[in-house]
Design a protein around this nucleic acid. Structure first.
Lengths: 253, 253
DNA sequence: TACAATTGTGTCATTAATACACTTTGATTT
DNA sequence: AAATCAAAGTGTATTAATGACACAATTGTA
C-alpha cells in the first residue's frame, strides 16, 4: 500500500502520461527444461500477488505497450506475445483499491477509475529473463504453474483464460521458437508440449506428428555427452515456421 | 458530417455518459437461406460506410454494451456475440475526424480523443433483424459480403479479422443456433457452412461429420411440399450444443 | 563386458477424411 | 397412370491420420 505522498505522485505521473481506463496485463509463461512457470509480482506490505502489467502511453500502440511492460519486467525483447482477451467487468478493480478511496478526491485518483485490461500472453525461456519488480511491488518472481498463490483482482481468471487459449493455440500454431535453444532434441521439444498441456505424450507419435508439420530441420550432429544414446539435434526451419505462424496448420474444413 | 451545434451536443452527451477512449465495433454477419451479408451504416453527407458501433456507458460491462449496440441496430437480443480483438493503432481515427478538429477545443471534442475499439462479431438471421440507423448515419443496411463498399477507419481490417476468426471457430465450435429455424434440413445447414467458408462441401461427408458432433436431433417428420424427395428435419440438441460451445469439439493434442 | 537408460525406427489396428455411386422419393410432366 | 427429374438418403472403397505398442541401436557406467 502506498503512502499518501506516494499515491499523489503516482497518480500525477499516471494522469500525465497514460491513457486513462486502460491497463495491460501480461501472463508471462516461462519455460526451461520441462518446467513451466508464470511471472508474478507481490504487492508491497500486503503479500498479495498479481500479474505483470501496466498502462499505455497516450500515443503508444497497444502492442508496443505490452512489449515495453514485458521488457521492464524481464529485460526481454522480441518475444512471442499475443493479445487474447479484454477483461472489463466494471467492478473488477473496485474492491482492491478501496483503501485509496479517501486519500484523494476521485477526480485525481487514478485508482478509482474504472479500468479495462487487455490481456496478453507471452512465452519466454525463464533462463534468459531478469525479473524486475515494479514500483508497487516488493518482488517479481517465477512461480511454478502448479503452485500459483491467490491472485488479486481478476488475475486468476486472466491466467486461466491465457492458459486455455495457449493450449488451443497448440493445435494450429507452431510454438517453441524462443523457448528452445537454437538446437534441441526431439525429447526436449516434447517436454515443452507436455509441460504446456500438463500430460504425457507418446514419444513416437509426437515425433511423427511434429515432423509432419515440416517446421524442423534435423542436423547431422547428435548431442554427445549424455549418459545414453545420443539424440539428433533439430532446429526450427525459419521460413516454414514463420509461414505456419501466419497460415496455421491445416485444420478442419 | 455534423454541424457545429450537433457536434457540441453530441460531444456533451458522450462525455457525460460514456467511458472515454473506448469504442465497440460489431461485425454483424447476417445469414438466410445460403446468403451471407454484413450490416453496414452509411455516414451522413459523405457516402462512406462503417460498421455498427458505439460506446460503453461508464459503468456498463463490455458484453452488455455490445449487446445494447446490437439491439439498437437490429432489434435483436440474445444472439451469438463474441469478442475477438482490440484494435488500437494510435492513428486509427485521426484522419477521419480531421474535419471536427477546429470546431471545438480538443478538451471538449470527443472525436479528437484516441479510441481503442473492441471488436465483436455476431451471427444473426437477417430476416429477424430490423436494421436501424444511428444518429451519424443516413442508412443501415445489409450488404452482401462479396460486395462490401470501401469502409472508413480500420473497419476493413476489423471485418477481415472477424471473418478469419469465425472461419477458424468453425473447427471447434458449433454454430447455427439462432441462424437456422427451429427445424431445418441437413442441406440447409450445409449451406450455412458453405456460405461462411465460401466453398462447396461434399454432401455426404458433411452429414457424417455433422452427425458425429452429436449436437443434432433428427425428427421423425420430413419436410413435405418441396418439388423432390422430402428431407428429414433436424433440430439442435440444446444440451449437447451448449456443452460443445463451452468445451469445443475434440481437437488435436 | 554386461547393464541400464534413452533414443531411433517400424508396424499394426483403429479412426477419420476423401472421393465417389447407387437407390429412394415425391412432385411434375406426359 | 407411367415416366421423368431433381433432390435427398445411404453406402463403400481408398487414403490419411492417430493411437498403441515392440524392438533394435547407442552410450556411459557398473
Amino acid at each position: 500500500m502506498l503512502t499518501k505522498k506516494e499515491l499523489i505522485d503516482y497518480c500525477r505521473n499516471a494522469r500525465e502520461n497514460y491513457l486513462p481506463h486502460f491497463s495491460i496485463d501480461c501472463v508471462v509463461f516461462g519455460f526451461h527444461e520441462g518446467i513451466m512457470k508464470v511471472l508474478l509480482l507481490q504487492v508491497k506490505n500486503e503479500g498479495e500477488w498479481y500479474l505483470p502489467g501496466g498502462f499505455m502511453l497516450k500515443k503508444e500502440p497497444i502492442e508496443n505497450a505490452a512489449n515495453r511492460i514485458l521488457k521492464e519486467r524481464t529485460g526481454l525483447d522480441k518475444i512471442f506475445l499475443q493479445q487474447f482477451h479484454v477483461f472489463g467487468d466494471p467492478e473488477r478493480s473496485k474492491a482492491h483499491f478501496e483503501m485509496y478511496k479517501d486519500m484523494l478526491p476521485a477526480s485525481q485518483n487514478w485508482f478509482t477509475n474504472r479500468f479495462l485490461t487487455i490481456g496478453y500472453y507471452a512465452l519466454v525461456d525463464f533462463i534468459d529473463a531478469n525479473p524486475t519488480r515494479d514500483e508497487l511491488s516488493v518482488s517479481c518472481t517465477w512461480r511454478d504453474l502448479h503452485d500459483v498463490p491467490e491472485l488479486k483482482l481478476d488475475h486468476a481468471l486472466i491466467l486461466k483464460t491465457a492458459l486455455d487459449t495457449l493450449r488451443l493455440q497448440l493445435n494450429y500454431q507452431p510454438i517453441g521458437y524462443n523457448l528452445m535453444p537454437k538446437e534441441f532434441t526431439m525429447p526436449e521439444l516434447q517436454k515443452l508440449y507436455e509441460t504446456i498441456l500438463d500430460k504425457k505424450l507418446d514419444r513416437r507419435n509426437f515425433q511423427r506428428r511434429m515432423l509432419g508439420f515440416g517446421i524442423l530441420n534435423r542436423s547431422e550432429q547428435q548431442r554427445k555427452g549424455g549418459a545414453h544414446k545420443a539424440p539428433y539435434l533439430y532446429s526450427f526451419n525459419q521460413e516454414n515456421y514463420q509461414a505456419a505462424l501466419k497460415e496455421g496448420f491445416k485444420g478442419g474444413w
